[in-house]
Amino acid sequence: MLMIKSWIYCCLLTLPPILGLSQNLKQEVEKRIKAEEMPAIALEILATHLSQASKIRYYKETDIGHQSFECKFILDRLWYSVEFDENGAIEDVEIKMDFEQIPQAALDKIRYSLSAYDRYRIRRTQRQYTLAFLSSDDLLTMVIKGADELELRYEIVLSVKKDGSWTTYEMLFDQSGLLIEKKEVVDRQTDNILYQ
């Protein structure tokens, strides 16, 4: 009887991680949606800018305690990503760029921060514009027009090597190259690529 009970407890303890019910990992969930599922105000803001855009995609992002909407598109050969809150107001606008395109002073500072690691490999770099004193609609218009006076940040996804092992992070640097935020990124499993 004791053995049966032990076996049941063992199953109950091991089942949650196997079924993926563990809540230890914080993960942003991104789901592709149709345009109609976006907040109406967000669609209004986007409407004037998307006529010349291509590869327009809409997503809903859910993080613990936070939900947002995103529109990704290509305009004038630039890859845009515009994030909206639940009410349809812009949270930030991101544009893909090369790491080497970061202005030299900020680039030096970022490289200095990264020199704390044995090695690093840049995976993706985006410049990020957030609302300061602008309204939601103004921000997107000014970013697309390429206004220089906007304050920006750099979001960099990179893998770093420290003490012999590699970890992937999403790091956020301010305009001067100062590290503001660092989040570990969970990479997709490669078991189906490696072994099957």
Binding site: Q27, E30, K31, I193
Partner: peptide, 20 residues
């Protein structure tokens, strides 16, 4: 040589399909 990708969004999240 192999290719795989999620069918919803850029990342593969729980409860999503992928193709390969």
């Amino acid at each position: 040589f192999s290719v795989d990708f999620p069918l919803s969004g850029q990342t593969l999240d729980a409860g999503e399909f992928y193709m390969l």
